[in-house]
Amino acid sequence: MIKIENPTAAAYLEGIDYTRWARAHFPGIRYNIMTTNIAESFNALARHARKLPVVMLIEFLRSTLQKWFYTRRNIADTCTHPLTPWAEEKLANHIHKSANMIVKPITVDRYEVYSSGRSVAIVNLATKECSCKKFQLSQIACVHVAAIARFQNLSNCYPWVNKYYSTEYWKAVYREAVEPLGDPSEWVQPEDIRIVNPPQMQQRRSGRPSERNRRPSEGEEICQIECSRCHQKGHTRLVCKNPLSAATTSSSGLGLSERI
């Protein structure tokens, strides 16, 4: 599908190896996380706070974490299920989809599971693997494992869900509190404290600084603005100081006379 839409992108992805971008071929365990954009999300949260002085910015980040930990700690404490609400909903959805599946045992740990479309999946409960790959990738019992649990007359699929989805681990993440710093007048300052002066800043461009500037990705082509007067990139006609060629001047004059 990628080759049809963009052959160049397909050739690039094949060249860097499937383990770099395909979750099914990734050697580690990413659970159900597809991206690593937590840094971008945090930057968006602190977009306005980044304009503040450094001490106020740090206090904003600390107070935000304090609020997050308090809120999520209370939510985790009210959870009465063995798994987190997200994992419970995911597992319930798998159990619902496995209602009409047919299970045929191969050995004590290996099973053959037929879905409604007659597709076959081989499940190994000992190694926690399924030929659909979803079991080992997400570490949550897939629909085929749910069908096996029903075949064995089990009441739940908890033994085949990773412990990191448990409520116990969820509570442990937010068990510690983020403490406030208190009044600055009560802080204990060391005698050998070193004063760090602000860095020497270059002359800043006039106008309000942009809030959307970012570093371009590797290989990314940056689209530059083009001057409508001299047709060179990097500036607009409002600040253009380049001399115009005779052809440009004559064409501009001709266009003006025609309009008149």
Rank of each mutant, 00 (worst) to 15 (best):
G15S: 15
G15E: 12
I16D: 02
I16V: 15
I16M: 13
I16E: 02
D17Y: 03
Y18L: 09
Y18N: 07
T19A: 03
T19V: 01
T19L: 00
R20E: 11
R20W: 05
R20F: 08
R20H: 12
R20T: 07
W21I: 10
W21A: 10
W21M: 11
A22V: 06
A22R: 14
A22F: 06
A22Y: 06
R23A: 08
A24T: 11
A24K: 09
A24H: 04
P27Q: 09
G28S: 03
G28Y: 01
G28R: 01
R30A: 14
Y31R: 04
Y31V: 00
N32R: 13
I33C: 07
I33P: 00
I33K: 03
I33R: 04
M34T: 12
T35M: 05
T35D: 09
T35E: 07
T36L: 05
T36M: 08
N37L: 04
N37K: 12
N37T: 13
N37P: 02
N37I: 04
I38F: 04
I38K: 02
A39W: 00
A39L: 05
A39D: 01
A39Q: 04
E40L: 03
E40H: 02
E40I: 03
E40Q: 04
S41W: 05
F42G: 03
F42C: 14
N43Q: 09
N43I: 03
N43C: 10
N43D: 10
A44W: 02
A44E: 08
L45R: 14
A46R: 01
R47N: 11
R47Y: 01
H48M: 08
R50V: 10
K51E: 12
K51R: 10
L52Y: 09
L52T: 02
L52I: 00
L52D: 04
P53D: 14
P53V: 10
V54T: 11
V55L: 12
V55A: 13
V55P: 00
V55N: 09
M56I: 08
M56F: 06
L57G: 04
I58E: 14
I58L: 15
I58K: 13
I58M: 13
E59A: 10
E59P: 06
F60D: 06
L61Y: 13
L61D: 01
R62C: 08
R62P: 05
R62I: 08
T64V: 13
L65K: 12
L65R: 14
L65H: 05
L65V: 01
K67N: 15
K67W: 06
K67I: 11
W68T: 12
W68I: 15
W68N: 11
F69C: 09
F69K: 09
Y70P: 00
